[in-house]
């Protein structure tokens, strides 16, 4: 093909894809692409937050009582764990900037580890909900649910019946945290792929976009959780 010979006006840098005119164009394009991806992610979760808002206004009691059954301590632990993983991914980007391959691998490994801790805690929380028969559709029992809610209610509040819309609270809880977890699982896949690339020495101080953009993605996933935690646990 005559292409390589034809583009004579400039040298291709090693990391530049052939259809870009310059490295700068490539970098800017990728960055814009990532931000647009974030925008669509926001709209994706936006649909869930819209449903959440509507039902919370309709059924404030269900929300108050549902949130009462959450283990705020575990939620707090997970929030701290995720903030920690955000920090470790920042350090991974920092390592990449300084051409520190070991640093990238080390901080990515820590990020994954913290992610696993998050999943472990989440699994405990889901398991408790399952035991208390608080999973709409799959494992739900009105009597058991009422009992659990009564147990978690403050001492001076007497609850005689399930508030209307309580199943909606749990449905949204599972869908929202589930979608968040799905994003984390995708993040795991991406992280492992980037670690393999890093181990093979594909990045250097001039070229480490994968690391940087993964950082952005991971921050986004964390921010979603930062919203979910107060909305689902603390209302």
């Amino acid at each position: 093909m005559s292409h390589a010979a034809a583009s004579t006006d400039h040298e291709h840098k090693p990391y530049q894809q052939h259809h870009f005119e310059s490295m700068e164009q490539q970098t800017q394009s990728t960055l814009l692409g990532i931000w647009l991806f974030m925008a669509q992610e926001i709209l994706f979760f936006g649909g869930l937050f819209a449903a959440y808002t509507v039902y919370r206004i309709l059924y404030p009691q269900a929300w108050a009582m549902g949130a009462g059954t959450q283990n705020v301590f575990l939620g707090m632990v997970n929030t701290i764990v995720l903030i920690g993983s955000s920090l470790s991914i920042v350090l991974a980007v920092h390592s990449a900037r300084h051409n520190d391959k070991k640093g990238i691998l080390k901080w990515f490994a820590l990020t994954l580890l913290l992610g696993l801790v998050f999943f472990g805690v989440k699994a405990i929380e889901y398991g408790t909900k399952w035991d208390h028969q608080l999973v709409p559709g799959l494992n739900w029992d009105d009597g058991h649910a009422l009992h659990t809610i009564q147990e978690h209610a403050p001492k001076n509040v007497e609850i005689n019946e399930l508030p209307k819309g309580i199943q909606l609270y749990y449905s949204l809880y599972f869908v929202m945290t589930g979608m968040h977890a799905l994003h984390m699982i995708i993040g795991f896949g991406l992280a492992i792929w980037i670690m393999i690339k890093a181990a093979r020495g594909r990045f250097n101080a001039e070229y480490y976009p994968h690391v940087e953009y993964f950082g952005l993605y991971w921050h986004f996933v964390d921010i979603v959780w930062i919203f979910l935690f107060p909305l689902l646990y603390l209302v």
Partner: peptide, 11 residues
């Protein structure tokens, strides 16, 4: 799954 987001019977 039987989640009731739009099901009037579940509110």
């Amino acid at each position: 799954l039987g989640f009731g987001i739009f099901d009037p019977q579940k509110g």
